[in-house]
């Protein structure tokens, strides 16, 4: 599998977090995306929103100091920053559908070069887990994805067309994988940055559609 090569999980989260701009309202999905809140991005003022209505949460609570009635989207006991607010679920999703989320960061099984992505249902399953992903994907200003370059069996996750049922269509703006930073550009992906220790041949071999490589391909930036 490709998961052992290139960036580790925290580095993928870091690279996405470097994209956050001062003043943004950011929603982080379960799994690797939650690690974006660990990244040092200097004095940029970011408000983290969680779908259960917590606006302005901070780091994970130290052991023994948890408030058992305060969790993020992943059910982890978090802390609140000064100025935080709590609203109920209908208001929380009014924030989402109302277009106030600057970026949502999610995991995915597949991203297609037209910006479609799939992250709620695996092959052969009747049901799945949607959570807030469809609302966020349809309504956030930007959708960024963090995922491994390939499946455990080595199949590409950056594809021409999603084989799995999609979460939303045409919405993905940026993808960080352990191999680099990619943008869906309609007829393929453009690689913006390549991970240290990964060759361009390895990237070509693991992208399931056309890959555009800029003349001056940068190495993934790992400091803010």
């Amino acid at each position: 599998m490709s998961g052992t090569k290139g960036l580790n999980r925290q580095q993928m989260a870091d690279r996405i977090a470097f994209e956050f701009q001062d003043g943004w309202i950011v929603n982080l999905g379960v799994g690797i995306p939650t690690m974006c809140s660990n990244t040092d991005i200097g004095d940029r003022d970011i408000t983290y929103h969680s779908e259960n209505g917590v606006i302005g949460y901070g780091p994970i609570a130290p052991q023994g100091e948890e408030d058992l009635n305060l969790v993020n989207a992943g059910g982890q006991n978090v802390t609140l920053k000064a100025g935080a607010a709590v609203v109920h679920h209908a208001d929380s999703f009014a924030i989402i559908r109302g277009g106030r989320i600057d970026v949502t960061v999610m995991g995915a099984y597949e991203v297609a070069c037209n910006g479609d992505f799939a992250n709620w249902k695996i092959a052969g399953q009747k049901g799945g887990g949607i959570g807030g992903a469809m609302d966020l994907a349809a309504c956030a200003r930007r959708v960024f994805i963090i995922m491994e370059q390939t499946t455990r069996s080595g199949a590409p996750r950056l594809v021409a067309q999603c084989a799995l049922p999609v979460t939303a269509r045409g919405v993905v703006k940026l993808v960080a994988t352990n191999y680099g930073l990619f943008e869906p550009i309609g007829d393929g992906f453009r690689i913006r940055e390549i991970a240290p220790g990964v060759t361009l041949d390895e990237v070509h071999a693991t992208v399931g559609c056309k890959l555009t490589v800029p003349e001056n391909l940068l190495t993934v930036r790992l400091v803010s």
Partner: peptide, 17 residues
């Protein structure tokens, strides 16, 4: 659910709210 013993309707969380 997968075995059909119980029915389910899967709804996006914001739509449910």
């Amino acid at each position: 659910y997968e075995s059909g013993e119980v029915d389910a309707e899967l709804v996006p969380q914001g739509t449910l709210a």
